[in-house]
Design a protein around this nucleic acid. Structure first.
Lengths: 207, 207, 207, 207
DNA sequence: CATGAATGAGTCTTCATTCAT
DNA sequence: CATGAATGAAGACTCATTCAT
């Protein structure tokens, strides 16, 4: 009985994820509004009705998809960072991790960026908060690393760790956007050293 | 006759701009899809039909609006930078200019950021190119400044000017996004020194 | 200016009524749920979109249609009763008026009866109240007639005028329903004398 | 074997009635269209599929439910009337029975009234006939009573028994509708004497 | 027979665009 | 050119019915 129950649950879980995968594919390719529920259904190889058995609305499907992928990427990154030897290594791992993630989930990253800016669902502050929380939590991790590094004398003390996080995120995002805007212009992966260098030492000529 | 013609032209130009202003207001507030053509018409105090006498479609109206504002901001920034005394002053002016611009056109900046990421009009590569061109042209200006500064011994020579532009843009955008995401969290204007410092010297402890 | 305004208004009024007529035709024939908005549109020879320019939803169109017809029938009946010479004449006019009305608006009468019973729009108590008010107001008129008649010694005094109204309405409705259920079984119009007799003297053998 | 067969049959009968009870509850509360098959299933504590093992469609389930309850009420009333001592007593019993029935099955009575008016299932004339037959058969019983009463000198002879039935039904229905429309306005049960009086002697002042 | 997930046809509603005045 | 009513294609969502387990 418990076995059969658990099998059903697992089955449902599997289908939920199939739908989320399909949703990610079409939503990231065409955006929320240009994607119809039927597009998702076709991609998922389920009927429209079935989608509605899993998600009560197009909007919630979309949000769930973003949450789902975000959570996974977050977990992946956390696992990577957990093994960092020291603050500098942490930084290298993060930058490299972001590069990898960007290659693997290019379209999702674009979508997420838009979503973070937009007020697509102005009435759904709850959801924005949820997503924002995940991100804030993540930045806290980065800030802690800068704080530790500063204590160890590796980073400056006249700049707050939070500002350093903004710099780190901004800088890596800047290169990322350039790459996303035209992936053929250059290889994002080749920018690893440049990003690290600029973040740590800046553009100024060392005196 | 030529006078009357010109007066007509000027009149038409005036109306075009009125409509573009109205479009900017509603599009930036509600986004492209949640804004109806009638919303724009009401805001512009013209009828729907009249809007179509000036712009052949909602999409082109939207695009024109973005171009229009982008061009103005670009002009404004160019004027500001033209008076720069030297590469470092140029950098300061740019960062401060971006801050000011962000305060004056918060919503537009958000919209533009989304638009740059999104492929809202995947079929309209022409438009994307046009906008991208304006931006590329702008980045060339920034790159030239870094090149000049490097020649003058103010900036590093082991990093390409183009990469420095990415760093500059990314770093300032990073703080900007943080502020746009929650304008009450801090004052963007207060970050001037931090951004400048981080860009020039990085997060690393000077040895 | 005032003329043109008024012409537009009249034009709009005319169209509104056209749509209401069309709505009455299809709604009374097929019922609310089996009628699609397109059915109404086709009948009205307007497009679906145009219907929505006049009425914000199928539900409100339906309700407006009922109100509209009800109001007209009410006016008609009031005009008829206004000329009554005395309470007995009033009674005769009312019964005859109801017969006529039933012949002219058979389907509407059926629909109204259903609607009075049903809670089709449970959330729209407002509307039910509005319709009920019109009817209550009408019953008051009937009650007043019985009161007057009782004072003049034509009607019993041991029964309240309100109960007499219930009897009048019930009795005429009873025959009406029988006729509506199967209009071929007999002629409703032929029942005038019987209804009047039964109402005034009852089924009991006069002693 | 015949026993086991019969047990199975009885079991099936029991379930059928359980489902009909559940159907009555939800259909009378929400109406045919606003009730989903799942609503009935939940109420009946069976699955949707099982419902379809007993009734081939929602429509037939609905019709069966009405027939089922109608038959029971009919039986109940017949039992009551069978014991009538004379035509006048019969009349009293009938009116009182209708009052009681109305209190016990208020919602069903409302539904039945609507159904009798509406052509919900215009294509299912068969069903309408079936229901109508039950009712017609019932009216015949009432007519017979009036006929007998007239022969005994209790009722008028210048009015057909059938018309008296219409009067009886209409009059009692009239008060019933008023009560159903707003059960708090008065007590239907209190109207027994008034209804009887009006039916027998009418509203006119006895001369 | 019992189950309930899957199906997809059917509806209401929106809104960009047109065009007669 | 200005107007705004008319249009109808398109899309989100529902729910009666089926069928594999």
């Amino acid at each position: 009985m418990s076995d059969s129950q658990s099998r059903k649950e697992r089955e449902r879980q599997r289908r939920t994820e199939e739908i989320l995968e399909a949703a990610e594919k079409v939503f990231t390719e065409k955006g929320f509004h240009r994607t119809t529920v039927e597009d998702v259904a076709v991609q998922a190889e389920y009927s429209v009705g079935t989608l509605y058995n899993f998600f009560p609305s197009k909007e919630l499907l979309y949000q769930s998809m973003i949450e789902h992928r975000f959570q996974r990427l977050s977990d992946q990154m956390n696992a990577l960072l957990a093994e960092a030897a020291d603050p500098m290594d942490f930084l290298r791992r993060y930058i490299q991790g972001k590069i990898d993630l960007c290659y693997q989930h290019e379209l999702f990253v674009k979508l997420y960026t838009q979503e973070r800016m937009g007020d697509r669902f102005a009435d759904s502050q709850l959801w924005k908060d949820k997503i924002e929380d995940l991100y804030v939590q993540f930045r806290r991790l980065l800030a802690d690393n800068f704080r530790r590094g500063a204590a160890e004398g590796r980073f400056r003390r006249d700049i707050t760790p939070e500002d350093m996080v903004s710099a780190l995120e901004g800088l890596t995002d800047g290169f990322m956007y350039d790459w996303l805007a035209d992936p053929n212009a250059f290889e994002y992966a080749d920018k690893f050293e440049v990003m690290f260098e600029l973040l740590v030492h800046g553009v100024g000529k060392p005196s």
